[in-house]
């Protein structure tokens, strides 16, 4: 059993990412979409929390490339370990995990 968690808000606006990371289990995936991608930029305070979560909780973290590009975040500015994916990759993650949980 594993869950794909989606987070669509910046960590600087809401607690969705923080709350999501507090409810994951090893093997889960977290996908940042829309304004959620703002949290994945390297050298940011939210980015540090993402790095810590990957190291400590065994979750995989993804960011939607189209939303990063729209917000001027190049792939080489992503926190190490966060993978950029496209919508097809989003579909794959939704299929590979057993349920999708949106942190609205």
């Amino acid at each position: 059993m594993s869950i794909l968690h989606t987070v669509n808000k910046s960590a600087y606006e809401r607690n969705a990412l923080e709350s999501c990371l507090g409810h994951t289990r090893p093997g889960d995936a977290v996908l940042l979409i829309e304004d959620g991608v703002i949290s994945a930029r390297a050298g940011s305070t939210a980015g540090e929390k993402l790095a810590a979560a990957m190291a400590e909780t065994g979750v995989s973290i993804y960011a939607l490339g189209a939303d990063m590009a729209a917000r001027g975040i190049p792939e080489d500015k992503l926190v190490d370990g966060v993978k950029a994916i496209d919508y097809a990759g989003f579909v794959d993650l939704a299929a590979e995990n057993d349920a999708v949980e949106a942190w609205l």
Binding site: M1, I3, G22, A99, E101, A102, L104
Partner: peptide, 18 residues
């Protein structure tokens, strides 16, 4: 607890959030 809540989530087929 938060940990129990996380376990509860793992046990679901459909999770609806609004």
């Amino acid at each position: 607890s938060r940990a129990e809540m996380a376990d509860l989530m793992q046990d679901q087929d459909v999770i609806l959030s609004f």
